[in-house]
Amino acid sequence: MKLGIDIGNYNVNTSENIMFKACISNHKEFGSCCDKLVYEGKAHYIGEGKLEIDYRKFDKSNYLPLLLAAICKSCTHEEVEIGVGLPLTQYKENRNELTNMLNSKEFKVEFNGVSRRVKIVKATVFPEGIASYVSSNEKLKGFVQGRDVVVVDIGGGTTDISLIRGRKALKSTSINKGTIDIYNAIKIALEEKYFDINISIDNIQMYIDRGFWYKGEKQDISFAIKRSNDIFKEIYNELKLNYPINTEAVVLAGGGSDLLLKVFKSKINSIAVDDDLYANAKGFKILMK
C-alpha cells in the first residue's frame, strides 16, 4: 500500500484522512482513550504530552513512534510504501539522510494490544510546498491560469514559501512562525484580558470553533484572533519583498491557512488548497505514483 504521511510540529496527517496531535507521552492521562503504541519495549500514548519542535522534524525523539502510529492508524498492511516530506529549504541537504533512516526498514510494534510487523519497503522524501500544490492542482487550474505559483505553506512551527513553475521550485524561504505561534498570540491576548485564568494553547482551536466562555457568558474573542495578524505581517513582508505576489498566483496551504486566509485575502489575491490539513500528505501519495 502507498501512504503519504506528513509529520508536522503540531499535527500528524496522512493521505487516508487520519490526523492526530504530534506529541507522545509515556504515561496515560486519566480518562484518556488515546491509541497506545509499544515500540522497543516502551509504551507510547499517541496525541498526549508536550509538543516537540525541532528545525529538522526527523530529529524529534518521537519521530519514529509518530510515523509508526500513523501507519498503524491508516492501514492494516504489513508492507507499505511511504512518502514523507521536508521543507524545500531542507530538502536537498537532508532528503538522503531521511530516506536512509526509513527505507527498507522493518519494525515490530504492538498497537492497541495487537502485535504488528511494519515493513517500509520503500520511503521517498518529497518537498512539502510542491506536494501541497500538486494535491489540489485540478481545483487551482482556473485560478492559476498558467502562471507561476507562490505556495505559502503555514505549518505548525514554520511557514515555508516556494515559487513553483510546473513541479519545479525556483526559490524557497522558511520563516520560523506557524500555527503554534498563531495560537500562542491568541492565548496571550485572552490572558491579558481575562487575567485570572490560564489558557492552554491546545484549546485555542476549540475556542475558535465553538466559542469562548467566561463566568457563564460567551465572549467575543475577535480581538484576540486579530492578534495573529502580527504573524501575517512577518509572512507578508517576506512575500512583498522577495516574491512576485502581484503578478503570479498565490496559494495557501497548511493548517494555519484557515486562520490567516481572511487577512491574506485582504492584502493579496490568493486561494487556499483543498483539505489544507491533508494537502501535503495527499500530495506525497500522488507523487509516489
Rank of each mutant, 00 (worst) to 15 (best):
Asp202Asn: 15
Tyr194Ala: 05
Ile180Lys: 06
Ile208Trp: 01
Thr179Ala: 13
Phe195Lys: 15
Lys187Met: 10
Lys193Arg: 15
Ile180Phe: 06
Phe195Gly: 04
Tyr207Arg: 03
Ile188Glu: 15
Asn198Arg: 06
Ile208Ala: 01
Phe195Asp: 14
Gly178Tyr: 03
Leu190Asp: 06
Ser200Phe: 00
Ile180Met: 13
Ile182Met: 14
Tyr194Met: 03
Tyr194Leu: 02
Asn198Met: 02
Asn203Tyr: 08
Glu191Lys: 05
Tyr183Leu: 08
Glu191Val: 03
Lys187Phe: 02
Ser200Glu: 12
Met206Trp: 00
Met206Gly: 14
Ala185Gln: 09
Ala185Met: 10
Ala189Ile: 05
Ile188Val: 14
Ile208Gly: 02
Ser200Val: 00
Asn203Arg: 14
Asn198His: 07
Glu191Leu: 03
Tyr207Ile: 02
Ile180Thr: 11
Asn203Ser: 14
Asp196Ile: 00
Gly178Cys: 04
Leu190Glu: 06
Asp196Met: 07
Ile197His: 09
Asn184Pro: 05
Glu191Met: 14
Ala189Lys: 13
Lys193Gly: 00
Asn203Pro: 03
Asp209Val: 03
Tyr183Gln: 12
Ile201Glu: 06
Tyr194Glu: 04
Asp209Leu: 04
Ile182Tyr: 07
Tyr194Gln: 06
Gln205Arg: 03
Asp209Trp: 03
Ile204Trp: 01
Ile180Ser: 08
Phe195Asn: 14
Phe195Val: 00
Ile199Leu: 12
Tyr207Ser: 04
Thr179Phe: 04
Asn198Leu: 03
Asn184His: 13
Glu192Gly: 13
Ile204Asn: 06
Lys187Pro: 12
Asp209Asn: 13
Ile204Thr: 07
Ile208Thr: 03
Tyr194Phe: 14
Asn184Val: 00
Ile197Phe: 08
Ile199Trp: 05
Thr179Glu: 05
Asp202Lys: 15
Ile208Cys: 02
Asp181Val: 06
Ile182Val: 15
Asp181Trp: 03
Ser200Arg: 15
Phe195Tyr: 14
Glu192Lys: 15
Asn184Ile: 01
Glu191Arg: 10
Phe195Leu: 00
Tyr183Asp: 15
Lys187Arg: 15
Ile188His: 10
Ile201Met: 08
Ala185Glu: 14
Asp196Cys: 05
Thr179Tyr: 06
Lys193Cys: 00
Ile188Tyr: 12
Ala189Tyr: 09
Asp202Ile: 00
Ile197Tyr: 04
Phe195Met: 01
Ile182Ala: 07
Gln205Val: 02
Tyr183Pro: 05
Asp202Pro: 06
Ile182His: 08
Asp202Gln: 12
Ile201Val: 12
Asp181Ser: 15
Phe195Ala: 13
Ala185Tyr: 07
Asp181Gly: 12
Gln205Asn: 12
Ile180Gly: 05
Ile182Asn: 08
Asp196Arg: 09
Glu191Ala: 08
Ile182Gln: 10
Tyr207Lys: 02
Gly178Ile: 02
Tyr183Ser: 11
Met206Phe: 02
Gly178Leu: 05
Ile180Gln: 07
Ile182Leu: 14
Met206Leu: 02
Thr179Pro: 06
Ile180Trp: 05
Asp196Tyr: 08
Ile199Asp: 12
Tyr183Ile: 01
Asn184Ser: 13
Asp196Pro: 09
Asp196Glu: 06
Asp202His: 14
Glu191Ser: 08
Glu192Trp: 04
Ile201Gln: 12
Ile199Met: 11
Thr179Gln: 07
Leu190Ser: 09
Tyr183Ala: 11
Tyr207Thr: 01
Lys187Cys: 11
Met206His: 07
Lys187Val: 04
Ser200Gln: 10
Thr179Asn: 12
Ile197Gln: 15
Lys193Trp: 00
Lys187Trp: 05
